[in-house]
Deep mutational scan, measured.
Amino acid sequence: MGFKLLSKLLVYLTASIMAIASPLAFSVDSSGEYPTVSEIPVGEVRLYQIADGVWSHIATQSFDGAVYPSNGLIVRDGDELLLIDTAWGAKNTAALLAEIEKQIGLPVTRAVSTHFHDDRVGGVDVLRAAGVATYASPSTRRLAEVEGNEIPTHSLEGLSSSGDAVRFGPVELFYPGAAHSTDNLIVYVPSASVLYGGCAIYELSRTSAGNVADADLAEWPTSIERIQQHYPEAQFVIPGHGLPGGLDLLKHTTNVVKAHTNRSVVE
């Protein structure tokens, strides 16, 4: 069995187990497998329904001669939608809004960016022009300005110390501490036991640490421990890039980060 097929099978099995364990909360999309990078042309966006009122959005972007996937989250909030992270750029984010209108038909009224990198804030200006209120932590807003990236308009308070959590509509926002970046936030959907790890969490097929220019490698494993301790009931975990899975993604990420750190020390 090929690795790609095995990865998709694991996603399907995880979703099936969740649907059985929580039949009222989960209505997993039966329309197909989780979209992969090879299936999404740059400039297009796919939506994948995880649970009743919960979707991931998947886009792709060219970077350094390669094409990478990027995940975000959409959560229903009454007759409105909360968006977590842009679709990595203005063109993708405009396509995301169009796809949401086509498939869901509810307005996106608020959006949260989970850290300051372009795959999370690139497209904020498109959201703002569409009347979406954009939010991020003060740290993310400051770092985005320093980096020359787009800056969300509103500040999220109460997320300055490791372990801080605040309720934001249908989700809980959690600051686990520094990891992929010093400002990275985690998003949890309690009604569906869905954990969105953003770039602080890796997919299972990833074996290298990737972009760690703004990471705190020493603190990252401790931050992941905080996530595990705060959300032990999480059933569906979405990484910032690639295929979702279960809580095993947290341990896998820790292993990859520690291996990278150990290699760096040896070198």
Rank of each mutant, 00 (worst) to 15 (best):
R206W: 10
E225D: 13
D164G: 08
A21N: 14
L5A: 14
G240M: 04
E219T: 09
V171D: 00
F3S: 10
S223P: 08
E219M: 09
A95W: 04
S181D: 00
L96Y: 01
Q229M: 14
P107W: 05
I151L: 08
Q229D: 12
D85P: 00
T140G: 03
S31E: 09
E150D: 12
K102L: 12
F63E: 12
F3N: 14
S70D: 02
D79S: 11
H154Q: 09
H260G: 12
L204S: 12
D216A: 07
G65C: 04
A165F: 15
I20S: 09
L243S: 15
Q49W: 10
Y135R: 00
T222C: 06
A192I: 06
I50H: 08
T222V: 11
A130M: 12
F26K: 15
Q61G: 06
K8A: 14
V266A: 14
S205V: 08
H230M: 14
Y135L: 00
S22R: 12
D29W: 12
C199W: 05
I238E: 00
K258S: 13
H154T: 09
I20F: 08
L195C: 01
P69F: 11
L250K: 01
V37M: 15
P244F: 06
V266Q: 14
V67Q: 15
E267W: 09
S137V: 02
E157R: 12
I58M: 07
N92C: 01
F3A: 08
E101D: 14
A218E: 13
G131R: 08
P35T: 08
A192L: 06
L82E: 03
A19E: 15
G246M: 05
L83S: 02
Y48R: 09
P170M: 04
A234D: 01
F116I: 04
V75T: 05
P152Q: 00
S193N: 12
G65N: 12
I40V: 15
A15K: 06
I17K: 13
W88K: 00
E157Q: 14
D125I: 05
Q103D: 14
V132Q: 00
Y12T: 13
V126Y: 11
F3K: 15
L106P: 06
L195H: 06
Q228M: 14
P176R: 02
W88N: 00
L217H: 04
S38N: 08
A165G: 11
S113R: 03
I74D: 02
Y68P: 03
Q228P: 07
S113Y: 03
R167G: 10
L73K: 01
L217G: 03
S137H: 06
R76C: 06
G65F: 06
A179M: 06
V166S: 07
L97R: 01
T36E: 15
A21Y: 14
A130W: 09
V212I: 10
V67F: 15
L173N: 05
S155Q: 14
N262T: 12
N149P: 04
G131I: 06
L195A: 00
S16N: 07
E99G: 09
D77W: 09
E147F: 15
G245Y: 03
P244V: 06
L247I: 14
N71P: 00
S16K: 08
R128T: 12
V146N: 13
T222D: 13
G53Q: 11
P244S: 05
A133F: 09
V265G: 13
A90G: 12
Q235S: 11
A51P: 04
R206Q: 15
E99W: 07
R141H: 08
N262Y: 11
E157Y: 11
P170F: 04
A133W: 08
T14V: 08
A192T: 10
F63W: 08
A95Y: 15
A136I: 03
I227W: 02
D64H: 09
I238T: 05
Y202I: 15
H57A: 02
P107V: 11
Q228F: 05
